[in-house]
Design a protein around this nucleic acid. Sequence first.
DNA 1: AATTAGCACTCGACGCATTTGAGTGCTAAC
DNA 2: GTTAGCACTCAAATGCGTCGAGTGCTAATT
Lengths: 350, 350
Amino acid sequence: MLTDRQKMILRMVVDDYVVSAEPIGSRTISKHPNLGLSAATIRNEMADLEEMGYLEQPHASAGRIPSQQGYRYYVDNLVNSDSKLSVDDFTMIKSLFTEKIDEMERVAQQTAVMLSGLTQYTGLVLGPQVYDTVLKNLQIIPLNDHSAVVIVVTSTGQVQNRTVTFPEGIAMDEVERLVGIVNHRLQGTPMYKMRSRMLEEIMHEVARSVGDYEEAIRLLDQIAPTIGLENEAKVYLGGATNMLLQPEFQDVQKVQPVLSWLEHRDRVIEALKSDGRVVQHPSVRIGIENDVKTLQDCSLITATYHVSGVPVGVIGVVGPTRMEYGRVIRLLHHVSLGLSELYSKFYNGS
Amino acid sequence: MLTDRQKMILRMVVDDYVVSAEPIGSRTISKHPNLGLSAATIRNEMADLEEMGYLEQPHASAGRIPSQQGYRYYVDNLVNSDSKLSVDDFTMIKSLFTEKIDEMERVAQQTAVMLSGLTQYTGLVLGPQVYDTVLKNLQIIPLNDHSAVVIVVTSTGQVQNRTVTFPEGIAMDEVERLVGIVNHRLQGTPMYKMRSRMLEEIMHEVARSVGDYEEAIRLLDQIAPTIGLENEAKVYLGGATNMLLQPEFQDVQKVQPVLSWLEHRDRVIEALKSDGRVVQHPSVRIGIENDVKTLQDCSLITATYHVSGVPVGVIGVVGPTRMEYGRVIRLLHHVSLGLSELYSKFYNGS
DNA sequence: AATTAGCACTCGACGCATTTGAGTGCTAAC
DNA sequence: GTTAGCACTCAAATGCGTCGAGTGCTAATT
């Protein structure tokens, strides 16, 4: 357990270090106005904090920097996450959400960009991915004799499409009849059940019209991914190159793996998805707390947003472990609320 | 005009420098087997080449590196662009185009990744954007009382969608009737004419059903962008972080602007679109030849691909001016042919 | 006239020693 | 418990000599 004075010193070290990116010496702390202590006293306290693992020294005669454990303590005990946003931050966020954007995809992209702009770190937005969506409409629009576009509309207004080529010897009007059947019988079916429902309910119809089970299955297999749970959430990045502005990433060898990691959307998605496991909200993963080895010098802060109380997506910020935790946490909190509201309004009909 | 010997020396300097990234000395060149000249002779020739502006010296007692003018001469006169691809390159390209990919969007992305993988530079793919597409089908799927999804399918199988909110007091069945009219009267209309055709042919119908011109226009305005030429081409990047592997970009201050430029899709699109102005094919823009100041230490090589002889998109590679021009040009040439074939097959019905 | 050997010269890169100064730990006094 | 004082440490900056790749020029060679 830390004394109040130690907490205060730790907080000061973190706060100072976050802006300066240079080791903090005892003199710097002692000069702080609301702390009437000499450098020597601070030195003693700092030595204790180091012994306990909250601070560390880059080398023997340097100032102290927070250890990852130090950041963790700071985040858990010294950040008051429900304090107010700065006025600038607030108006900035507000302006995004009041601006009328009718393409929902752009909202996500814009949010990522805004997060990066506000923080000078990299902004991430995952989703939205609504799990309990049901089939609203299936369309198959023939393009020519061999191919057609399959379009699936869900109850949430998500549209997915894919171009398929038909098996030989299937007549267009048969396909149309089939689409009619699907729409008739499966409208309202939850998307995650589609595959099996299609198989059991439709299969014999397909077989009858195509006259060949194997061909029917091939056709179904082509349509299925469009329909099925392949509505993998997309991830949107903003300000990936902000990483290059951070002092700790001035070495190309250091940034390269991080930027390269960000380039592979699937890995980013995975990292964001694992947000659910964490208790706090927003969730903060500092350095090695990330499963991803590449991010051991980074922190990833994430928050989920919801539609009607159900989590549908994640927003987040990646930056160096030396991060403005307090501010970023508050930002993510408010942005996630804004996004939740926006999407809820949208999905439930404005 | 350069003598044959000078050409040969220039070629050697470029070829060597491209792989080593270190200034090339006279001794290095004189050691070349099929050139029986002493270092001293080479020195004289190099001094001449420098005087003419094809070579330059980083500092007085260093070897020579090609100037941008040198690269230009190399590209214009010393590259035989129709020589063969290496076997590895060929099989690599082949494998992408034989692999069956039914999502057309993924083809573009995969191509960008492949280009970056083959070259260690950054791969770019723009498009495809087919201008003479005609309307195949318009669908409006209602989601709830106030909003619906507008879906437009073009003859090329491109699908665009957008969520719209309806003006107050418009009945769903009226909308449906309207969609019927659009499909009936405007199917086959070129997309770029849609806006005006809709206005002139449909307007009175809309007005009749909605009973109010102003509301009708608002509705139309919401639908129009989905339908109209807003099918702006998308750009796909691959291997942006490859820039960080290049020796000339080991300095973060140097790469940052370039990567940042790549992050803004609109600027990249613009740069790729201006490909059309250039005569050669593939087009090569070296350093300051780029309109974009940010790219003054980079070269951008682009090639167009076609559907039925009409250019529909651009592929390209960005890297440092020290680039394997010959190989990249050949690669782009072949990849653009492959893409053209693939898309032509697709759009014209396989 | 073209080529080449020879040589003095240039200049960045590298290694090494020196200096500097911010910051520490410890001890003794308050 | 706090603080002043002081010796100590160590990275970073600075200066200096060496090294060597590479040049330009001149004179000899073909």
